[in-house]
Design a protein around this nucleic acid. Structure first.
Lengths: 259, 259
DNA sequence: CCTGCTGTTCACGTATTCCGAACGCTATAC
DNA sequence: GTATAGCGTTCGGAATACGTGAACAGCAGG
């Protein structure tokens, strides 16, 4: 699973595993972590102190939390590609125009990361607390609309590489878990120019996504618009309407990027 | 300097040093990193591969970049405290009202982190590329307005702790580098309720900041409004005007938080 | 073709990490 | 008030796994 080419640095891996465990448990104590990762308390102790010293963890009483030191790095990654920043702007107008949730997603290492997220109707801009789609979340490529839209534009070889690495885990009964079915779907997506996601990621959530490509036909990322199934009708026409909105926005963006 | 209580985990430290070096050089090759950190190429090789495998670095040809894997963690940290999210909203209205740059900053481990940043006049919301203040940046507490505003509300003991840990490095000729002067300044800030920064961080940049406190008088964070010195007049009245705007916004926020 | 630069691999020795038991400490229960 | 259970902390010792440096492969340019 975590196939590592040469000789992985185990110590670093355990440090990172600790950080991950802290995040997933939303604050954990030393003993909890030691038990969960099956490590000696003293080992965990040393790691935690090192990570706190570096600012990646914060200690509050006896529980540890994720530190803000991650921020300078994530913002660096987010802003590294100026194309990303340009694209991110568009999320807001998409959300407003459709009155639904909109996001901009990017592929890295075979996973999809949400770079920007917005809700329509809501006046509050950055407000995106409870949503499973808020910025910074990571998805598999095969069970979200944006992910599939991007996969459809990658080479078959690359797609297989990604599937081999990350598999096709199911999150709902509708998730595509079969390679052949997925490749059929990708063909459909290529034909119609956009991808749909009908409760494949989350029950009751439906979305439509389309990819952004650069001048040299490389995939930059993808936008998607989604919402509860009761609001996004299944019928062809309303899906098309949203898809058209997406494609128009992307056209406009792509010509802006071409300058 | 990097005083670590018990036995620091050296391997983790070097991994993190590598990540930092990659960020600071905005993309670096293996050999560059090996030379810069004075490590064997093979060592760097193993670390880099491990970090890529974990998603914290990305390899593009032969240069390494910061990976998006930092995002899920930074967003977690950013959203952990719901108070932060509530406060962050206010940055936008501050920026619009004053027509200047506004940010919300939080203290962690003796350092100040920008959680949200906005520019007035500009219609683009998240657009905050080139500014040294954009979200995710980290500052020392003593040379920015928000930092000083927060220091003024901490106990003397805690302030000394922070100074001991991080020092008073100068970034301009106006930076306060003397402890006694700083404590005098903090007294002034407590008296007037807000802090000013007159080119102490960046030449030509002036700002005004005030801290947000919780119901139990704990310091939550601080807002600041700033801009080029030629736009933010030095005279008392205009400073007061902005300060009043800040304090009003904070009052309103604090009563919202008290619910 | 050769030189200089990448990144990669590998065997070796030693420094480092990891463990486990013992210690303080606080809070709860009795 | 004492005992106990839980926490984090410290420390010595042992084996692991980290770091090194030299040798290898691939590529660009002279």
């Amino acid at each position: 699973m975590t196939d590592d080419g040469p000789r992985p640095v185990k110590t670093t891996k355990t440090s990172l595993a600790l950080v991950r465990a802290v995040r997933d448990s939303d604050g954990a104590t030393l003993s909890e972590l030691a038990e969960r990762l099956d490590l000696a308390k003293s080992t965990v102790h040393n790691h935690l102190h090192t990570l706190v010293d570096e600012g990646f963890l914060v200690r509050d009483g006896d529980t540890y939390h994720i530190g803000l030191q991650f921020l300078p790095f994530s913002e660096h990654a987010r802003n590294r590609n100026p194309l990303y920043s340009t694209a991110r702007q568009r999320v807001y107008s998409l959300a407003e125009k459709t009155g639904n949730e909109a996001d901009f997603i990017v592929e890295e290492n075979g996973r999809a990361y949400t770079l920007e997220y917005a809700i329509g109707e809501s006046t509050a801009r950055g407000l995106s607390e409870s949503s499973p789609f808020r910025a910074g979340n990571r998805f598999h490529m095969h069970n979200c609309a944006s992910g599939k839209a991007m996969l459809a534009l990658l080479s078959d070889g690359r797609v297989r590489e990604i599937l081999d690495r990350w598999g096709l885990p199911a999150t709902t009964a509708h998730t595509i878990t079969d390679e052949a079915t997925l490749f059929d779907e990708l063909e459909t997506i290529r034909r119609q120019g956009y991808a749909t996601n009908d409760e494949e990621l989350i029950d009751g959530y439906r979305s439509i996504g389309a990819a952004v490509t650069g001048p040299d036909d490389t995939v930059i990322g993808a936008f998607s618009v989604g919402g509860p199934a009761y609001r996004l009708a299944v019928d062809e026409s309303s899906t098309r309407e949203i898809a058209q909105l997406l494609l128009d926005e992307i056209d406009s963006l792509e010509s802006e990027l071409a300058l």
